[in-house]
């Protein structure tokens, strides 16, 4: 059996519209040989299918999706960061994001309390999310003098 299938399968079935979520609806039809439990508490949306596809990686593609699935937990959905006993820095209107090298390094290797994400995200995902934060939340750096982050830049940062 392919371990990668473990959590993908139920979502794949859901995506195909085979699952039912509302109470009192008939149980899911289970194709022969395709294991899936028949109980559902809600119908995940298409976007939500992306969640939790693997314990060791983040399945999302595209800067916005990666940002919302991971980064927004600390830097917050609006990029404003958060303040407690310490703080998560705001990404909004942040000049440190002007050149891609710094945010790429931060994501790959982490810094201070920020964990490294180099092993959870691939080069494309990191380049995408770096470009996303550099072009959102009041930042307009992708069009600026340093241009876009490329997957090759991420690969170089890993070394």
């Amino acid at each position: 059996m392919n371990p990668i299938k473990t959590t993908i399968l139920p979502f794949a079935l859901l995506a195909a519209g085979m699952a039912t979520a509302q109470e009192n609806l008939p149980p899911v039809e289970v194709p022969e040989g395709e294991p899936v439990s028949e109980f559902r508490t809600f119908d995940p949306t298409e976007e939500e299918f992306e969640n939790f596809r693997g314990a060791g990686n983040i399945p999302h593609e595209g800067g916005e999706a990666v940002y919302n699935a991971v980064c927004s937990g600390c830097h917050m959905p609006d990029g404003q960061g958060a303040v407690g006993a310490g703080e998560y820095p705001a990404l909004a209107d942040n000049e440190l994001l002007a050149a891609p090298g710094y945010p790429i390094y931060m994501v790959v290797h982490g810094q201070a309390a920020m964990p490294p994400f180099g092993s959870l995200l691939d080069d494309q995902q990191i380049a995408d999310v770096v470009n996303y934060v550099r072009s959102h939340f009041g930042n307009d750096f992708v069009e600026g003098e340093f241009g876009e982050a490329a997957p090759e830049d991420v690969a170089a940062t890993r070394e």
């Binding site: 809600f42 939790f52 693997g54 060791g56 991971v70 927004s72 959870l120």
Partner: peptide, 17 residues
């Protein structure tokens, strides 16, 4: 790990769901 990060990025009701 990856699962905890994704739950971290959700709001409480969504996590419980």
């Amino acid at each position: 790990g990856a699962n905890a990060y994704q739950f971290n990025a959700m709001q409480p009701e969504e996590r419980t769901k």
